[in-house]
Design a protein around this nucleic acid. Sequence first.
DNA 1: CTGTCCGTGGTGCTTCACGA
DNA 2: TCGTGAAGCACCACGGACAG
Length: 283
Amino acid sequence: MQFILTNPNLQNRSSFQETMLPESENRENLSSPSFIKSLSLGQNWKSKSMRIFPEEFVRSAGEAFVHRVVLSVLWNNSWQCWLQQDKNGLFMVEEDWDEFVDDNLLDTDDILLFTHQDTIYFQVRIFKKDGSEITSVPLEGEPETQPFHQETTPAFASANGGTSSRARKGYAHVENPKRYLLNPRNPYFEKTLTKTNTVLYVNTWVIEEYDLEFSPPNTHMHFLLPDGETLDGYTKDYGGSHSFLGWAAVCERCNLRTGDTVVCELELSGRVVVAVRVHLLDE
DNA sequence: CTGTCCGTGGTGCTTCACGA
DNA sequence: TCGTGAAGCACCACGGACAG
């Protein structure tokens, strides 16, 4: 493993350049505190040593992040990683970090550039050995039109009027909804707006299929809009149904009307839903 | 029967007007 | 000009209706 700090006060530019990142990337990231992770011999991305934050980096950040961080990538997907402190330093929780590794299909030659953007928010850029950058969702060698885990995704079949489940109100057929997702592994469902749209209900089959968990009622969450904006929401439990308040503001902000259909992609931390990413359908 | 939608009452916030 | 109170509006919570 190597950590190379790129904060002007902490940087190690010679080592940084050895990673074969493009010169432009090197220069433009010097303004924000950054560090790099790459594998040493005998390590893999799920090694505990890969989950640690560089000690000097944590020191320089003060108390900006103590309990959790949010890792964002260029294609606007993000992962929340809870942190734990032990005698060796500040680590990301194994389950959260492993999910990041799995979702991004990290290879042994990959290089990650962590840039501290604001408080708990980090941008993570993924570079291949030759310096090329991953800029879109890594796919597991499948054509993009093929849904992930198709054989084990009745949520997909049901939401599209599959034969094994009855059709549900408010869940219209969307042609190939997976193509809207930023991360094809994320749970998702389709939502057709009805007359009253103050609450977004999460369908139980989605919850069951993906084994989802929800924060306690009134826990803060986010709606991630197509234009990159974020709106606040809160978890609710109405009559045993998991749902999110703040949906009315989303509908207004996106100018959604009765009959419009959107794809709701659920962003998870572990199995807990922490955000709903809203995708408008192509006309 | 289950699960989602819809309608309505309640609550809280914001804005405006009036009085000191 | 500032403070207070009333009115209006938006959103939330919940229970009943209804579709599958």
